[in-house]
Amino acid sequence: MTNTEDLPEVNGYSRVSVLVSAVVGLAVAALALFWAQGFRLGYESLYRVNPSVEGGGIGSDWVFGNTIPALDFLIALIHAADVILGAFILVMVFIHWAAFQRLADQMREPGESASEAVAADGGSPTHSDGQGGDST
């Protein structure tokens, strides 16, 4: 078990810096809200995005087409990034999945007693409740 004196000394963040950061964060968020929302409610209905589930939708506007090639390129770029990074993330999932299988093989099977383990150490894990520390 852990005695509290074993706990490390940690140089955390000071209260002042946390407080200042919180104030700055909230202030910038409030400014962003003010800028995005504005007070000209008339504009709110302009370019209104309505999911198709309730009718409306933005398809009709898309018909006119995107006249700015740079935006079209950006979207194509993000598509490519999605696919490339998606494939990479899948590779990482499979590597970790396989690594976890190997790590699990190194562990004791559920219910396996200490005497059956390769490196017996005198513990009695069979009576453990997951909290450990059942030794005498």
Binding site: M1, T2, D121, G123, S124, P125, Q131, G133, D134, S135
Partner: peptide, 27 residues
């Protein structure tokens, strides 16, 4: 654990791993 002088044996463990008894012993 802070209140009584003797620690009671436990680990900051999740349910998956069951720490070994000698962790406690060595303390």
């Amino acid at each position: 654990d802070e209140r009584p002088a003797a620690a009671d044996g436990g680990e900051p463990q999740t349910d998956g791993g069951q720490p070994e008894a000698d962790d406690a012993e060595s303390e």
